[in-house]
């Protein structure tokens, strides 16, 4: 039997040995390496200024930076989550100029002058937004990873219904859409919850909308 300490030692030993063998394989004469890889040119950057949760922010970013990475890695607003990074899961949903979007599928530099609201801007633990409060009340999550995106999406969904935006399940295109479970399920389909908290999420949203579920 190994004690935990012995196991740690032997594990470290394996790691050291591994690193050494890698180093041996990658030894290349310096002259050859220089010829093969020209000095890296720093990637193009651009400046962008926008407002995040009511605060003006100015950044100079590698042009490739998504709005999601700008928020998380540069502004350290880590409430917005990176799930799939391809617009399929909705964990990165934020509200830009009043509209929910996937922050992973948009370049930060394209948002000059715009107003961005993240989960941190909706409310704080001391002063929660009504939707955050309802998610807690109705247990609208398990692991919580998709929750910031779900909540940002839910807030915008109620605005969309109020604005008369139709959905796939709106029966009459001439009439104003209403808050029903079927409407909410359809409109929230861009936010995936792999824990399966969907029914409680719909309860939370209907609670905030002030209608009977």
């Amino acid at each position: 039997m190994q004690t935990p300490e012995e196991f740690e030692l032997s594990r470290r030993g394996v790691l050291v040995g591994g690193a050494a063998s890698v180093a041996t394989v990658t030894l290349v004469p310096i002259g050859t390496a220089t010829a093969a890889t020209p000095p890296a040119k720093s990637p193009p950057t651009a400046k962008v200024a926008f407002e995040v949760n009511g605060t003006k922010r100015e950044l100079e970013l590698d042009t490739r930076t998504s709005l999601l990475d700008a928020l998380r890695e540069h502004l350290h607003l880590t409430g917005t989550k990176k799930g799939c990074d391809h617009g399929q899961c909705g964990a990165c949903t934020v509200i830009v100029d009043g509209r929910r979007i996937n922050s992973c599928l948009t370049l930060a530099v394209m948002h000059e002058g715009e107003k961005i609201t993240t989960i941190e801007g909706l409310g704080t633990p001391d002063k929660m937004h009504a939707m955050q409060d309802a998610f807690v009340t109705h247990d609208g999550y398990q692991c919580g990873y998709c929750t910031p995106g779900q909540i940002c999406s839910a807030v915008a969904v109620l605005d969309e219904i109020r604005a008369g935006v139709p959905s796939h399940v709106t029966a009459d295109l001439a009439a104003a859409p209403t808050v029903t479970k079927v409407e909410l399920r359809e409109r929230m389909s861009g936010n995936i919850c792999r824990c399966g908290a969907y029914s409680n999420i719909i309860d939370a949203i209907t609670d905030v909308a002030g209608v009977k579920a």
Binding site: G87, G90, T93, R99, R100, I101, N102, L105, T106, S153, A156, V157, E160, P166, S167, H168, T170, L173, R187, M188, S189, G190, N191
Partner: peptide, 19 residues
């Protein structure tokens, strides 16, 4: 042009249709 509205809202997600 109800067909156009119906086709649009049958596609993608609310977030994607906003962009």
């Amino acid at each position: 042009y109800g067909l156009l509205t119906r086709a649009l809202v049958a596609g993608a997600s609310g977030q994607l249709r906003n962009k």
